Simulated scan of single mutants.
Amino acid sequence: MFAGSIVALITPMDVRGNLCRSSLRKLVNYHINSGTSAIVSVGTTGESATLSHEEHGTVVMQTLELANEKIGVIAGTGSNDTAEAISLTKRFENSGVIGCLSVTPYYNRPTQEGLYQHFKAIANSTNLPQILYNVPSRTGCDILPETIARLSQVENIVGIKEATGDLSRINQITNLVKNDFILMSGDDATALDFMKLGGKGVISVTANIAAKQMVEICQLAHQQDFNKANKLNQSLMFLHKVLFCESNPIAVKWAAKKLGLIKSDTLRLPMTPLSVINQLQVEQALIKSGLQM
């Protein structure tokens, strides 16, 4: 369930900032038809920080409904408040989600013991599989390999999305955890190298707009056909990087609208639309990657 190309799905909104169900349907069908392994609904790329709790639940449940069991759905359930993360997690029990993705607590900057107790408490509150999400560039908080090893002993903590971009972390973690603990990349630019070193796949931003290509890269890596994988990945490398020219998901939402995958690239404040100068960069990346002629 947790391997290959998993998309960190954007949350499409109309021009008023409300959920756009028709665009969500189009996105879900796009990923079903492209062979994407699973969808992460309302992760951080899905703008969890600016959705209300009610909206958060609505987006996940609508994604499940539209997926209609044709593609697995992972719910983003992270918070910097342990009680809130538990509440979100329990909301999706018996809903049909295949697991939860839980980001490290942002701003609080807990100690390693605090991180351990936080994720352990969440896992102990549910039977749903839990995937840790480590992205210190956004949260100011880093789960160290030794803490990941402790958490891997908790029965339903099954893996981690590692978005540090530090490839040395893979061996550090692998040497400390059980063989069945799943390592997923959270950094598109280094994802193929991550898989070469034993990672099982990527939870991807780029897959929002280049789903088939990301699926193929992961399949080629699984087959250890790295020559073809490298060639395809290189064609996307400019795109991988340009999608982060402004804070995610600003650029990828603009690109998705440009490609006709969503009706509007609306974001909620404090996120603002992609600047004109970076629109030119993203458009060049779309052309260079063959997504737009």
Rank of each mutant, 00 (worst) to 15 (best):
G201K: 06
T272R: 07
F238N: 10
D14I: 05
E69Y: 13
A121G: 12
N108K: 14
L132I: 01
Q292Y: 15
G96K: 05
T174K: 15
L286V: 11
Q219C: 12
S34Y: 03
N248S: 15
D14V: 07
S41M: 08
Y107Q: 14
Y133R: 00
V242I: 14
K253Y: 13
V154G: 03
V276Y: 12
A123N: 04
L176E: 06
C141M: 11
V242F: 13
Y116H: 13
E47Y: 08
V215Q: 06
E113K: 09
S102C: 15
T164L: 05
D225S: 13
L267G: 00
E54W: 11
Q224A: 15
G96I: 05
M271N: 09
W254T: 08
Y107D: 13
G17M: 12
V103H: 07
S37I: 01
A211W: 00
L274Q: 04
P145V: 00
G57H: 08
L101C: 10
Q172K: 15
N68M: 11
R25L: 08
S137R: 12
C245W: 02
Q234Y: 12
S264W: 06
E65D: 14
L9D: 07
L9F: 08
D166F: 12
N248Y: 07
I203E: 05
Y106L: 10
S79L: 11
R138D: 07
S168M: 14
S87C: 13
A75G: 10
K231Y: 13
I131T: 02
L115Y: 05
L151K: 01
A207I: 05
I39T: 03
A256E: 12
P129F: 00
T190D: 02
L280S: 14
Q292S: 14
A163V: 09
M61G: 04
K231G: 09
Y107E: 12
V252F: 08
Q223S: 14
I143W: 04
N68G: 11
G114T: 10
S289H: 07
L239D: 03
L167R: 06
A3Y: 11
I182Q: 06
L261C: 12
A251R: 01
S185L: 02
L286Y: 00
L261V: 07
G198Y: 11
I262Y: 01
N108P: 08
G159N: 02
T139M: 05
G72H: 13
E65Y: 14
V154C: 10
